[in-house]
Write a protein that binds this DNA or RNA. Sequence first.
DNA 1: TCTTTTTGTGTAAGCGCTTACAATGAGGCT
DNA 2: AGCCTCATTGTAAGCGCTTACACAAAAAGA
Lengths: 353, 353
Amino acid sequence: MELYATHKRLMAMTARTVPRLEDVARRAGVSTATVSRCLNEPQRLRAETRERVEAAIEALGYVPHFGGQALASNRTNTIGAIIPTMENAIFARGLQAVEETLAAAGVTLLLASSAYDPAREAEQARALLRRGVDGLLLIGAARPQATYDLIARHRRPLVLAWTLGPAAGAACVGFDNRKAARDLAALVLEHGHRDVAMIAGVTAWNDRAAARIAGVRDAMEARGLALAPERLVEAPYAIEAAERAFSDLMAPAARRPTAVICGNDVLAAGAIKAARAMGLRVPQDVSITGFDNLDLAEVVPPGVTTAKVPHRRMGRQAAETLLALRDGKRPPQFDALAVAIEVRGSLSHPPAR
Amino acid sequence: MELYATHKRLMAMTARTVPRLEDVARRAGVSTATVSRCLNEPQRLRAETRERVEAAIEALGYVPHFGGQALASNRTNTIGAIIPTMENAIFARGLQAVEETLAAAGVTLLLASSAYDPAREAEQARALLRRGVDGLLLIGAARPQATYDLIARHRRPLVLAWTLGPAAGAACVGFDNRKAARDLAALVLEHGHRDVAMIAGVTAWNDRAAARIAGVRDAMEARGLALAPERLVEAPYAIEAAERAFSDLMAPAARRPTAVICGNDVLAAGAIKAARAMGLRVPQDVSITGFDNLDLAEVVPPGVTTAKVPHRRMGRQAAETLLALRDGKRPPQFDALAVAIEVRGSLSHPPAR
DNA sequence: TCTTTTTGTGTAAGCGCTTACAATGAGGCT
DNA sequence: AGCCTCATTGTAAGCGCTTACACAAAAAGA
């Protein structure tokens, strides 16, 4: 045993470039406990002592070792988030706000992505929990119960964003996807459209996509219309998939839909691209709507009429909720975020037959 | 001391939900060392023992504690990456590839963003190093020496992506921004343009943006032309900034540029939007080019002529380099990635005067 | 048969930090 | 003066894991 210790000690002597708490303590002429306190509850130290320790920290360029802290304190000042994808900008803006809010509280955000795959999500959750995250942020509420159990077993607070639930014992921060989609669809119908089709996101394990379909159905049924099965296509959130979906919807020359409601702006952009390729004018020949109000929506002519999701506010609220839960406080109670409709050129009246 | 230990032990008894290595060992009837070996070098165990341990791990749902591992082994199987922004898709695709490649090797990617601010980048690097990342991936080569020193002091391998250097002792994986921009500009000039302007990214601490300007200058000078100061505007990579920049460039009614080369596709999309708003047709009245070949480029009509950066390949190579360096191997030697030009509708001949 | 190796497993020391409790000394009260 | 409180700092146990070395048993030589 002695030899091992000696060996390590020697290694350390020759190889150490990163100072430890003990080095700081020695230099400042205090105990390791005092240095630790200087880091964690500086107000408990006499000003003179604190200054001495801080000087030593500064001089040595000391940075506390994360693993050591995590092990000893069982806290990491880290929040983990798993988003479905980084490929398009859907979640970027919200996450940026999460990150900023957390950073202001001295908490780091660990980001992972699941590619819309619940198994991958569970795996990532496991990895994040293993890293000792103090809390977890997930998107949406649809996932296997096992994932919820996993998180509960680790006793970590969980916040779901982009949805209002129903949540298995998790806090939700978000907006009413169904209502927003209903409002948007209602607006489309008010423009006189009766032949409406929808390119939705893939609904498997995606409650937002499903809720948006439900919202569209709501609006149509309220007017005695129905969304026929052949008028509903699911497509992954990608340009190309949307192009194909749009072509499929428009294939029957007779009774083509006059409006296509898309599950998000990426789909809408793809649909518009396909329409152009088919020689259809937007909105004269076909109206198209999106969801999210990404940059894309304002750049693609004639501008995508879309639901303006308050990403940043949602991100901030999610972060605040997580911080409160982590500290054992009751989380602030937020109202469901309002989603306005941003009207742009892609929505107009149906063409006269 | 006893009391403290007892207290903790009691807490543990009542509160433990997460099993430790010791619990697995007890259940499998082996020592903790054996369980640890089963995790790290399973081939060293007798098959029968290994199975018993694995069964216990499975039964208890044991997951090794990260902090404990990190502390004891001084390795984390984690690579950190700091990208300038998540707001737009510039880095998303490349990072996705990094993540996939690392995941295949059992390594987790920790992602942070710097908002193009070198101070923030250094701060994030410190945070990642503190977390014990085994290596670091940064974008571009331009940053204060202090950041390089910080990383060197921690003895962590560093890979720079999106650039070819010059790198302060770091491996570079990327492409020649200058050459790609030169090729693109040459193509513009071949179309007959002589009045060329450029909306570049902000060059402060951004060697890619600077290299692209240099490339455009190269091409122009090779034809005896120059990029006049009033024909060069820097703008952050955002739609709105690009719109303003474009308006500024087009303000003088006389001798307006006939082509605007943009530092990336986001800028190009903004420029096209502004052009439309000004009643200018693209490409009949003005040609516009981008860089990166984002989704945006194919969706915005008439399609953005752009440099096709091989993001995914670059990401994969960066990850492979990091993994090799982490294991103390010589990194594979990659050639600079080729950047092709994707010609789309936004580039044409200058209008006849 | 009696060494040598090899193989598989156990023992226990630390990794760098936090924190309960102890110790000290300075004031405050009676 | 004697006792108590409070503020400040020190002491040292332990967080959950890895791993050098010890040791026993099995395999391989001699």
